[in-house]
Write a protein that binds this DNA or RNA. Sequence first.
DNA 1: CCGTATCCATTCCGATACTG
DNA 2: CAGTATCGGAATGGATACGG
Lengths: 143, 143
Amino acid sequence: MCGVARPLDAIGDWWSLLIIRDAFDGLRRFGEFQKSLGLAKNILSARLRNLVAHGIMDTVPASDGGPYQEYVLTQKGQGLFPLLVALRQWGEDFFFEPGEPHVTLVDRVTNMPVRRLELRAQDGRMLMAEDTVIVMPTENTRK
Amino acid sequence: MCGVARPLDAIGDWWSLLIIRDAFDGLRRFGEFQKSLGLAKNILSARLRNLVAHGIMDTVPASDGGPYQEYVLTQKGQGLFPLLVALRQWGEDFFFEPGEPHVTLVDRVTNMPVRRLELRAQDGRMLMAEDTVIVMPTENTRK
DNA sequence: CCGTATCCATTCCGATACTG
DNA sequence: CAGTATCGGAATGGATACGG
């Protein structure tokens, strides 16, 4: 399975991606996800279990000391942030009507809004989507 | 429908995303997609029709003068490039075994490999996923 | 409030056969 | 080669009822 199909398989489906988005928005509880997404409880349960099984989310004891669990993104799950930004950015670029409010991601430390997702070559030069097309197999150099 | 769900709805499903990836790899013909993905012809047909209906792909006369069509990415479809990069990058970061060959995207003009997808704030400062979390509704300022 | 178990209708997908 | 039409089995998702 290739470098694109494997992530898709791990994420699972569309619902899972929306769960992950909600997790980035700070949601943690079963009921919060269900209320936000409006999907059946058994489906949500299965999706959360799958995300945990794939190491994207993890369960932690409830922060309020309650008898239940909370679901949080692992490091691996947090690595999906650029994917969600790309998705939202594409949506804003091609779907939004003029005057429609945008949703901007904000760095919580400096409170600076994120401008754009950028592609950069190894020499630091900026690349646009239009001139970056071909794939090429290379040796693994990163850990 | 929010800025994440709408793109998901337009793309359709995961088969569609793999079709788009193949299109970035230069595939254009019905049979090429089918052979590459191994999905049933009726499914492929439906997916291509959906992608065209959503303005992500378009049909053009066969480049070899044949009696059939070819399927190419529109501008809107090409805008999905960062999404695919993000997906693949995540896969390489969290799924690849040491020694497994990576697939690197290459700028076809300069032949430079793409290094990383980066998030930048409006002041140009580099942001990491870890400190960039919250969403905030804003006014639409772009066209 | 958090989940699991069960049921049912619908959808989805692959295989196949068929047309140009 | 490039699709369309059809069919049956499998998987899916929503509603609901139930239990911790």
